[in-house]
């Protein structure tokens, strides 16, 4: 059964005011256990609005949001229990940190779940390891950490709730390339070890293409494309039309193809691109 399922969700901001704005049009999607999904779209396409529907922070004007098969808005369910199952990490999550030690801040979520102190401690330790920080960080003041470390502490704060799915809104925004790769690799590892489904939200294909298995492209609040990563990538022209960056290597391959070289343009990673180019050279030489 899908962890999250959206059926024909519509949402508008500022209903009944002159500033009314339809942010989501008839969105249907599902997120299964073990998924690794990327949601991409240019700024303002509705990505952040969409993920706020996953854990009941926003209520759709029409349509349904099902979590583990139950409509979260009809069943008189405790919405908080949904939030513990659907872990949401917002953009620039470091702004949510407020405690004076790293351990205390990560413990905020688990404590809200009503877990006993022993369990909380265990989870804090575990979450910190997943984001690649060791126990020496536990008692440190979060406001003395570097930007990348702070971001990882914030992510750990959500991981510590052991959600079924972890959704991250632009988790690498504002980080240097090294910090970016580190976080993405840690998330990948976290997914493999814990089996948690992950949804990465980004405005840049390049960032997440290497990691995610499926991609959903949003444009003006509608799903414009959706499928496996390579299938979506093969429609590079459409992506460019939608105002999305495509990876440099994909641009190179497409450029070659446009010039009449018979090159395979489905490469997602640098390695695959290298192989495609080498094959091309072999052919040309003969």
């Amino acid at each position: 059964m899908a962890i999250i399922e959206l059926k024909n969700v519509n949402f508008r901001y500022g209903s009944g005011t002159p500033f009314e704005k339809q942010a989501l049009h008839d969105i249907s999607l599902s997120i299964e256990p073990g998924d690794f999904l990327g949601i991409i779209g240019h700024t303002g396409s509705g990505k952040s609005t969409l993920i706020r529907h996953f854990n009941g922070l926003l209520r759709p004007d029409s349509g349904q949001v099902l979590v583990n098969g139950d409509d979260i808005w009809t069943a008189s369910k405790d919405i908080r229990s949904i939030r513990f199952q659907i872990g949401l990490v917002f953009q620039y999550p470091e702004t949510q940190i407020f405690e004076d030690t790293v351990a205390q801040d990560i413990a905020y979520g688990p404590r809200n779940m009503g877990l006993d102190e022993k369990e909380v401690e265990l989870r804090v330790h575990e979450a910190l390891q997943f984001v690649g920080l060791n126990d020496s960080y536990l008692e440190r003041n979060p406001f003395r950490l570097s930007g990348g470390e702070l971001r990882r502490v914030a992510i750990a704060g959500v991981i510590a709730m052991r959600p079924q799915v972890l959704i991250l809104d632009e988790p690498t925004a504002g980080l240097d390339p090294e910090g970016r790769n580190k976080i993405l690799n840690e998330l990948e590892q976290f997914r493999r070890e814990s089996g948690t489904a992950i949804v990465l939200v980004s405005h840049s294909m390049e960032d997440i293409a290497e990691h995610v298995r499926n991609v959903l492209v949003l444009d003006h609040g509608k799903i414009a494309l959706d499928g496996t990563t390579s299938a979506v990538f093969s429609q590079a022209e459409k992506l460019v039309q939608l105002g999305l960056d495509i990876p440099q290597i994909t641009k190179v391959l497409l450029g070659l193809k446009a010039k009449g070289y018979a090159v395979d343009t489905g490469a997602l990673t640098l390695d695959q691109a290298e192989r495609a180019l080498l094959r091309l050279f072999e052919k040309e030489r003969r």
């Binding site: 939030r83 917002f90 905020y108 809200n112």
Partner: peptide
């Protein structure tokens, strides 16, 4: 905007 975002973030961590 920031206030909204932080409220949402803490709600996502189970704040009431």
């Amino acid at each position: 905007e920031e206030f909204d975002r932080i409220i949402d973030a803490q709600k996502a961590r189970g704040a009431e």
